[in-house]
Protein backbone atom coordinates (compact mmCIF):
# COMPACT_ATOMS: atom_id res chain seq x y z
CA UNK A 1 0.00 0.00 0.00
CA UNK A 2 1.31 3.40 -0.82
CA UNK A 3 0.81 6.30 1.47
CA UNK A 4 -1.71 8.80 0.18
CA UNK A 5 -1.93 11.36 2.93
CA UNK A 6 0.26 12.00 5.90
CA UNK A 7 -0.59 14.74 8.36
CA UNK A 8 2.02 15.69 10.93
CA UNK A 9 1.56 17.85 14.00
CA UNK A 10 -1.20 20.00 12.52
CA UNK A 11 -2.20 23.00 14.60
CA UNK A 12 -5.00 25.39 13.68
CA UNK A 13 -5.88 28.60 15.50
CA UNK A 14 -8.65 31.15 15.24
CA UNK A 15 -8.68 34.69 16.54
CA UNK A 16 -11.84 35.83 18.30
CA UNK A 17 -12.31 38.94 20.43
CA UNK A 18 -8.67 39.34 21.42
CA UNK A 19 -8.42 35.70 22.42
CA UNK A 20 -7.05 32.80 20.43
CA UNK A 21 -9.12 29.66 19.94
CA UNK A 22 -7.01 26.52 19.96
CA UNK A 23 -9.10 24.55 17.49
CA UNK A 24 -6.64 21.83 16.47
CA UNK A 25 -3.70 21.07 18.73
CA UNK A 26 -1.10 18.99 16.96
CA UNK A 27 -2.72 16.03 15.26
CA UNK A 28 -0.87 13.42 13.21
CA UNK A 29 -2.33 10.60 11.16
CA UNK A 30 -1.89 8.90 7.84
CA UNK A 31 -4.03 7.25 5.22
CA UNK A 32 -3.10 4.73 2.53
CA UNK A 33 -4.36 4.74 -1.00
CA UNK A 34 -7.83 3.20 -1.12
CA UNK A 35 -8.02 3.16 2.68
CA UNK A 36 -10.78 4.49 4.86
CA UNK A 37 -10.57 6.52 8.00
CA UNK A 38 -13.24 7.93 10.30
CA UNK A 39 -12.71 11.03 12.40
CA UNK A 40 -15.15 10.94 15.30
CA UNK A 41 -15.75 13.73 17.77
CA UNK A 42 -18.34 16.07 19.20
CA UNK A 43 -18.99 19.63 18.10
CA UNK A 44 -15.93 21.76 18.68
CA UNK A 45 -13.54 18.80 18.73
CA UNK A 46 -11.76 20.12 15.65
CA UNK A 47 -12.72 17.26 13.38
CA UNK A 48 -14.00 19.42 10.52
CA UNK A 49 -11.49 22.24 10.96
CA UNK A 50 -8.62 19.76 10.75
CA UNK A 51 -9.89 18.61 7.34
CA UNK A 52 -10.62 22.10 6.04
CA UNK A 53 -7.06 23.06 6.98
CA UNK A 54 -5.46 20.44 4.74
CA UNK A 55 -7.73 21.54 1.89
CA UNK A 56 -6.57 25.14 2.39
CA UNK A 57 -10.12 26.18 3.22
CA UNK A 58 -9.59 27.90 6.57
CA UNK A 59 -10.63 31.53 6.13
CA UNK A 60 -7.72 33.79 7.06
CA UNK A 61 -8.44 35.98 8.99
CA UNK A 62 -9.71 34.86 11.50
CA UNK A 63 -8.05 31.45 11.22
CA UNK A 64 -4.61 30.20 10.36
CA UNK A 65 -2.54 27.04 10.35
CA UNK A 66 0.00 27.47 13.11
CA UNK A 67 2.24 24.58 12.20
CA UNK A 68 2.32 21.15 10.66
CA UNK A 69 2.60 19.30 7.41
CA UNK A 70 0.01 17.62 5.22
CA UNK A 71 1.77 15.47 2.67
CA UNK A 72 -0.57 14.41 -0.12
CA UNK A 73 1.19 12.11 -2.56
CA UNK A 74 4.42 13.53 -1.17
CA UNK A 75 3.49 17.20 -1.61
CA UNK A 76 2.91 19.45 1.34
CA UNK A 77 -0.58 20.90 0.90
CA UNK A 78 0.00 23.47 3.61
CA UNK A 79 2.83 25.04 1.60
CA UNK A 80 1.05 24.88 -1.76
CA UNK A 81 -0.04 28.13 -3.39
CA UNK A 82 -3.71 28.91 -3.93
CA UNK A 83 -3.29 28.13 -7.64
CA UNK A 84 -1.78 24.72 -6.94
CA UNK A 85 -4.48 23.95 -4.39
CA UNK A 86 -7.15 24.84 -6.90
CA UNK A 87 -5.82 22.15 -9.21
CA UNK A 88 -5.89 19.59 -6.40
CA UNK A 89 -9.24 20.48 -4.84
CA UNK A 90 -12.10 18.91 -6.70
CA UNK A 91 -9.77 16.85 -8.87
CA UNK A 92 -7.54 14.91 -6.49
CA UNK A 93 -9.35 15.59 -3.22
CA UNK A 94 -13.08 16.11 -3.18
CA UNK A 95 -15.37 16.96 -0.33
CA UNK A 96 -19.03 16.30 0.48
CA UNK A 97 -20.58 18.52 3.12
CA UNK A 98 -23.27 18.07 5.72
CA UNK A 99 -26.07 20.19 4.38
CA UNK A 100 -26.74 19.57 0.70
CA UNK A 101 -29.15 22.49 0.45
CA UNK A 102 -26.64 25.14 1.44
CA UNK A 103 -23.76 23.64 -0.52
CA UNK A 104 -25.62 23.81 -3.82
CA UNK A 105 -26.34 27.10 -5.55
CA UNK A 106 -30.14 27.50 -5.29
CA UNK A 107 -30.53 29.62 -8.44
CA UNK A 108 -28.61 27.43 -10.89
CA UNK A 109 -29.81 24.13 -12.34
CA UNK A 110 -27.73 21.26 -11.02
CA UNK A 111 -26.47 20.43 -14.50
CA UNK A 112 -24.64 23.74 -14.70
CA UNK A 113 -23.10 23.20 -11.28
CA UNK A 114 -21.98 19.69 -12.17
CA UNK A 115 -20.42 20.58 -15.51
CA UNK A 116 -18.47 23.50 -14.08
CA UNK A 117 -16.03 21.22 -12.26
CA UNK A 118 -15.83 18.85 -15.23
CA UNK A 119 -14.96 21.62 -17.65
CA UNK A 120 -12.42 23.19 -15.29
CA UNK A 121 -10.58 20.04 -14.35
CA UNK A 122 -11.01 17.60 -17.21
CA UNK A 123 -10.92 20.07 -20.09
CA UNK A 124 -13.99 18.61 -21.76
CA UNK A 125 -16.26 20.72 -23.95
CA UNK A 126 -19.84 21.55 -23.03
CA UNK A 127 -21.50 18.52 -24.60
CA UNK A 128 -18.96 16.03 -23.34
CA UNK A 129 -19.23 17.57 -19.88
CA UNK A 130 -22.99 17.19 -20.01
CA UNK A 131 -22.64 13.53 -20.98
CA UNK A 132 -20.22 13.00 -18.13
CA UNK A 133 -22.56 14.72 -15.67
CA UNK A 134 -25.46 12.49 -16.72
CA UNK A 135 -23.26 9.43 -16.38
CA UNK A 136 -22.26 10.49 -12.86
CA UNK A 137 -25.86 11.10 -11.83
CA UNK A 138 -26.77 7.65 -13.11
CA UNK A 139 -23.91 6.17 -11.11
CA UNK A 140 -25.18 7.71 -7.85
CA UNK A 141 -28.62 6.25 -8.53
CA UNK A 142 -30.60 9.36 -9.40
CA UNK A 143 -33.57 8.26 -11.49
CA UNK A 144 -34.00 9.82 -14.93
CA UNK A 145 -30.73 11.83 -14.94
CA UNK A 146 -31.02 13.27 -18.47
CA UNK A 147 -34.23 15.06 -17.42
CA UNK A 148 -33.32 15.91 -13.86
CA UNK A 149 -30.11 17.67 -14.89
CA UNK A 150 -32.20 20.73 -15.79
CA UNK A 151 -33.83 20.88 -12.36
CA UNK A 152 -32.96 23.27 -9.55
CA UNK A 153 -31.81 22.11 -6.11
CA UNK A 154 -35.17 22.81 -4.46
CA UNK A 155 -36.81 20.29 -6.77
CA UNK A 156 -34.87 17.46 -5.15
CA UNK A 157 -35.40 15.78 -1.79
CA UNK A 158 -32.67 15.87 0.86
CA UNK A 159 -31.37 12.42 -0.03
CA UNK A 160 -31.38 13.21 -3.75
CA UNK A 161 -29.50 16.46 -3.16
CA UNK A 162 -26.84 14.55 -1.27
CA UNK A 163 -26.61 12.15 -4.23
CA UNK A 164 -26.07 15.14 -6.51
CA UNK A 165 -23.32 16.39 -4.19
CA UNK A 166 -21.65 13.00 -4.28
CA UNK A 167 -21.88 12.90 -8.06
CA UNK A 168 -20.28 16.33 -8.18
CA UNK A 169 -17.49 15.26 -5.87
CA UNK A 170 -16.73 12.16 -7.89
CA UNK A 171 -16.81 13.60 -11.42
CA UNK A 172 -13.03 13.87 -11.59
CA UNK A 173 -12.47 10.45 -9.93
CA UNK A 174 -10.56 11.89 -6.96
CA UNK A 175 -8.13 9.70 -5.05
CA UNK A 176 -9.46 11.03 -1.75
CA UNK A 177 -13.02 11.83 -0.77
CA UNK A 178 -13.63 13.72 2.45
CA UNK A 179 -17.21 13.25 3.65
CA UNK A 180 -18.05 15.73 6.41
CA UNK A 181 -21.14 14.37 8.18
CA UNK A 182 -22.85 13.72 4.85
CA UNK A 183 -25.88 12.05 6.43
CA UNK A 184 -26.50 14.13 9.55
CA UNK A 185 -29.30 16.16 7.97
CA UNK A 186 -31.03 13.03 6.62
CA UNK A 187 -33.50 10.52 8.03
CA UNK A 188 -32.22 7.08 9.00
CA UNK A 189 -33.65 5.19 6.04
CA UNK A 190 -32.17 7.78 3.66
CA UNK A 191 -28.94 7.74 5.65
CA UNK A 192 -28.72 4.00 5.07
CA UNK A 193 -29.12 4.56 1.32
CA UNK A 194 -26.32 7.15 1.22
CA UNK A 195 -23.92 5.10 3.37
CA UNK A 196 -24.51 2.11 1.12
CA UNK A 197 -23.90 4.26 -1.95
CA UNK A 198 -20.63 5.73 -0.69
CA UNK A 199 -19.39 2.30 0.38
CA UNK A 200 -20.15 0.82 -3.06
CA UNK A 201 -18.59 3.73 -4.90
CA UNK A 202 -15.46 3.51 -2.79
CA UNK A 203 -15.01 -0.14 -3.75
CA UNK A 204 -15.86 0.51 -7.38
CA UNK A 205 -13.55 3.49 -7.81
CA UNK A 206 -10.82 2.46 -5.37
CA UNK A 207 -10.58 5.85 -3.76
CA UNK A 208 -9.58 6.60 -0.19
CA UNK A 209 -12.17 8.11 2.10
CA UNK A 210 -12.17 10.17 5.26
CA UNK A 211 -15.51 10.02 7.00
CA UNK A 212 -16.13 12.78 9.57
CA UNK A 213 -18.90 11.99 12.01
CA UNK A 214 -20.15 12.42 15.55
CA UNK A 215 -21.78 9.02 15.43
CA UNK A 216 -19.65 6.06 16.51
CA UNK A 217 -22.38 3.72 15.33
CA UNK A 218 -22.50 5.07 11.80
CA UNK A 219 -18.79 4.69 11.08
CA UNK A 220 -18.52 1.21 12.61
CA UNK A 221 -19.50 -0.51 9.39
CA UNK A 222 -17.86 1.77 6.85
CA UNK A 223 -14.18 2.31 7.71
CA UNK A 224 -10.98 0.43 8.60
CA UNK A 225 -9.52 2.90 11.08
CA UNK A 226 -11.13 5.25 13.57
CA UNK A 227 -9.62 8.35 15.05
CA UNK A 228 -11.31 9.87 18.10
CA UNK A 229 -10.86 13.59 18.65
CA UNK A 230 -11.50 15.66 21.74
CA UNK A 231 -10.96 19.42 21.98
CA UNK A 232 -8.48 19.49 19.13
CA UNK A 233 -6.46 16.47 20.19
CA UNK A 234 -6.44 12.92 18.91
CA UNK A 235 -7.18 10.91 22.04
CA UNK A 236 -7.37 7.47 20.47
CA UNK A 237 -6.70 5.88 17.12
CA UNK A 238 -7.21 2.21 16.28
CA UNK A 239 -8.36 -0.32 13.69
CA UNK A 240 -12.15 -0.32 13.81
CA UNK A 241 -12.72 -3.70 15.52
CA UNK A 242 -10.08 -3.02 18.12
CA UNK A 243 -11.48 0.38 19.01
CA UNK A 244 -14.99 -0.87 19.72
CA UNK A 245 -13.87 -4.01 21.51
CA UNK A 246 -10.92 -2.69 23.47
CA UNK A 247 -11.21 1.07 23.88
CA UNK A 248 -8.17 2.33 25.76
CA UNK A 249 -9.19 5.89 26.40
CA UNK A 250 -11.84 6.93 28.97
CA UNK A 251 -13.47 9.31 26.49
CA UNK A 252 -13.96 6.61 23.86
CA UNK A 253 -15.25 4.28 26.54
CA UNK A 254 -17.62 6.99 27.75
CA UNK A 255 -18.93 7.68 24.25
CA UNK A 256 -19.56 3.99 23.64
CA UNK A 257 -21.50 3.64 26.87
CA UNK A 258 -23.42 6.89 26.55
CA UNK A 259 -25.37 5.49 23.60
CA UNK A 260 -28.08 2.95 24.37
CA UNK A 261 -28.03 -0.28 22.41
CA UNK A 262 -30.73 -0.94 19.87
CA UNK A 263 -30.79 -4.70 20.37
CA UNK A 264 -30.76 -5.14 24.14
CA UNK A 265 -33.69 -5.45 26.52
CA UNK A 266 -33.94 -3.50 29.77
CA UNK A 267 -30.63 -1.80 29.72
CA UNK A 268 -28.97 -0.36 32.77
CA UNK A 269 -28.60 3.34 33.27
CA UNK A 270 -26.61 5.19 30.62
CA UNK A 271 -23.11 6.16 31.57
CA UNK A 272 -23.05 9.90 31.22
CA UNK A 273 -19.87 11.89 30.93
CA UNK A 274 -20.25 14.69 33.46
CA UNK A 275 -19.39 18.28 32.70
CA UNK A 276 -18.67 19.95 29.41
CA UNK A 277 -15.84 20.08 26.89
CA UNK A 278 -13.08 22.54 27.87
CA UNK A 279 -12.97 26.16 26.82
CA UNK A 280 -10.71 26.29 23.79
CA UNK A 281 -9.89 29.93 24.38
CA UNK A 282 -7.37 28.88 26.98
CA UNK A 283 -4.39 26.70 26.16
CA UNK A 284 -5.01 23.25 27.57
CA UNK A 285 -2.73 22.15 30.39
CA UNK A 286 -2.54 18.46 31.10
CA UNK A 287 -4.98 15.98 29.58
CA UNK A 288 -7.89 17.78 27.85
CA UNK A 289 -10.34 15.19 29.14
CA UNK A 290 -9.11 15.26 32.75
CA UNK A 291 -11.83 17.59 34.17
CA UNK A 292 -14.54 15.12 33.09
CA UNK A 293 -12.63 11.91 33.63
CA UNK A 294 -13.52 9.57 36.49
CA UNK A 295 -9.98 8.12 36.36
CA UNK A 296 -8.12 11.39 36.74
CA UNK A 297 -4.90 11.47 38.73
CA UNK A 298 -2.66 14.33 39.69
CA UNK A 299 -0.41 13.69 36.74
CA UNK A 300 -3.31 14.13 34.33
CA UNK A 301 -3.80 17.76 35.41
CA UNK A 302 -0.18 18.66 34.81
CA UNK A 303 1.12 16.75 31.83
CA UNK A 304 -0.53 16.20 28.48
CA UNK A 305 -0.28 12.51 27.73
CA UNK A 306 1.41 11.57 24.43
CA UNK A 307 -0.14 8.96 22.14
CA UNK A 308 1.02 5.66 23.60
CA UNK A 309 1.31 2.54 21.45
CA UNK A 310 -1.18 0.29 23.21
CA UNK A 311 -1.51 -2.43 20.60
CA UNK A 312 -0.95 -3.07 16.91
CA UNK A 313 -1.70 0.27 15.22
CA UNK A 314 -3.63 1.23 18.31
CA UNK A 315 -2.72 4.43 20.11
CA UNK A 316 -4.24 6.10 23.14
CA UNK A 317 -3.45 9.36 24.85
CA UNK A 318 -4.14 8.26 28.41
CA UNK A 319 -1.64 7.90 31.22
CA UNK A 320 -3.61 5.00 32.64
CA UNK A 321 -4.32 3.04 29.46
CA UNK A 322 -2.88 -0.14 30.89
CA UNK A 323 -5.21 -0.10 33.88
CA UNK A 324 -8.18 0.75 31.65
CA UNK A 325 -8.06 -2.72 30.12
CA UNK A 326 -9.44 -4.05 33.41
CA UNK A 327 -12.81 -2.32 33.29
CA UNK A 328 -15.77 -3.07 31.10
CA UNK A 329 -17.99 -0.02 31.59
CA UNK A 330 -17.35 3.67 31.86
CA UNK A 331 -17.34 4.94 35.42
CA UNK A 332 -16.57 1.57 37.00
CA UNK A 333 -13.71 2.00 39.50
CA UNK A 334 -10.22 0.95 38.43
Amino acid sequence: MTRLLEVKDLKVRFRSDRTIIHAVNGISYSLDEGGSLAVVGESGSGKSVGMLAIMGLIPNPPGWVESGQALFKGRDLLKASEGELRLIRGKEIAMVFQDPMTSLNPVLPIGLQLTEAIQTHLGLDKNQARERAIEMLRMVGLPNPAQRIKDFPFQFSGGQRQRVMIAMALTCTPSLLIADEPTTALDVTIQAQIVELVRDLQKQLGMAIIWISHNLGLVAGVVDTVLVMYSGFIVEQAPVDDLYEHPRHPYTLGLLHAVPKLDTENQERLASIDGMPPDLRKPIVGCPFAPRCPYRQEKCDQQTPPLFEVGPQHQSACWRWQELSKISTFGEPL
Binding site: S157, G159, Q160, D187, V188, T189, I190, Q191, A192, Q193, V195, E196, N215, L216, G217, L218, A220, G221, V240, D241, Y244, L256, V259, K261, L262, D263
Partner: peptide, 26 residues
Protein backbone atom coordinates in the same frame (compact mmCIF):
# COMPACT_ATOMS: atom_id res chain seq x y z
CA UNK B 1 -36.78 -1.27 7.57
CA UNK B 2 -36.44 1.58 10.05
CA UNK B 3 -34.75 -0.65 12.62
CA UNK B 4 -32.42 -2.20 10.10
CA UNK B 5 -31.31 1.26 8.95
CA UNK B 6 -30.08 2.30 12.38
CA UNK B 7 -26.31 1.91 12.63
CA UNK B 8 -25.04 0.03 15.69
CA UNK B 9 -21.72 0.73 17.37
CA UNK B 10 -20.30 -2.72 16.75
CA UNK B 11 -18.19 -3.20 13.61
CA UNK B 12 -18.58 -6.98 13.44
CA UNK B 13 -22.36 -6.93 13.82
CA UNK B 14 -22.55 -3.97 11.48
CA UNK B 15 -20.71 -5.77 8.68
CA UNK B 16 -22.79 -8.92 9.11
CA UNK B 17 -26.11 -7.09 9.16
CA UNK B 18 -28.61 -7.47 6.39
CA UNK B 19 -29.96 -4.02 5.72
CA UNK B 20 -33.39 -3.51 4.30
CA UNK B 21 -32.72 -0.53 2.06
CA UNK B 22 -35.96 1.27 1.27
CA UNK B 23 -36.26 2.54 -2.26
CA UNK B 24 -37.08 6.15 -2.90
CA UNK B 25 -38.31 8.89 -0.61
CA UNK B 26 -41.30 9.44 1.62
Amino acid sequence: ALLSAVPVANPKKERARQRIILEGDV
